[in-house]
């Protein structure tokens, strides 16, 4: 199986996740860290004055901007069949676009991690515990590189030629 080869031939070890304990990376078995990772901060959904006794977790991508992680993420994007749902370069196919800067479940690193780890009810499988967490972060690093300049709110059709934003 190509999947497990990729999973075990994994990439660099994941760095510290903010407010989460340092964890040893394993290809499959969830551990204490992955349990805590289930909780992502959504301050935008908390009305002011809403009672709080805890400081919510804010996940940061330890591989953010890492060129090698982006390259690995691009390979994983094909190997795990992300490409056939979300399109080449995240342009969207049977699943939503990942390149338009518009997110159904949030576009921060933590929210993207949550979407990949836990899946989403519209058919996005839950990959958590199936692939290594650092692979998820590599995928996120790649995905976050796709939307540069693609969030174009206005399309003007009246010009002499139809302006193409596509590939």
């Amino acid at each position: 199986m190509r999947v497990s080869e990729i999973a075990f031939g994994a990439i660099c070890v994941m760095a510290v996740v903010a407010a989460a304990p340092r964890a040893r990376q394993a290809a499959s078995a969830p551990n204490a860290m992955t349990d805590s990772i289930r909780f992502v901060a959504h301050p935008e959904h908390i009305p002011s004055g809403f009672p709080s006794h805890d400081r919510p977790l804010a996940l940061r991508n330890p591989l953010e901007g890492n060129a090698n992680a982006r390259k690995v993420g691009a390979q994983l994007y094909v190997s795990y069949n992300c490409i056939d749902c979300h399109g080449a370069d995240g342009s969207g196919a049977m699943g939503p676009s990942l390149a338009d800067g518009r997110w159904h479940f949030g576009g921060t690193s933590g929210e993207l991690f949550e979407s990949i780890y836990q899946g989403r009810p519209d058919g996005m499988p839950a990959w958590g515990g199936r692939i290594a967490n650092d692979q998820i972060w590599s995928l996120i690093t790649y995905i976050q590189s796709l939307s540069q300049g693609k969030n174009v709110a206005t399309e003007n059709f009246t010009g002499r030629t139809v302006e193409r934003t596509g590939h």
């Binding site: 676009s97 518009r102 969030n151 059709f157």
Partner: peptide, 22 residues
Amino acid sequence: DVAANLPYDIRERGSTLPDLAR
């Protein structure tokens, strides 16, 4: 972008029929 999943999305126009969205 007639293909987007939600009206909120901005799907890139494909190269096959780029002017259909018009």
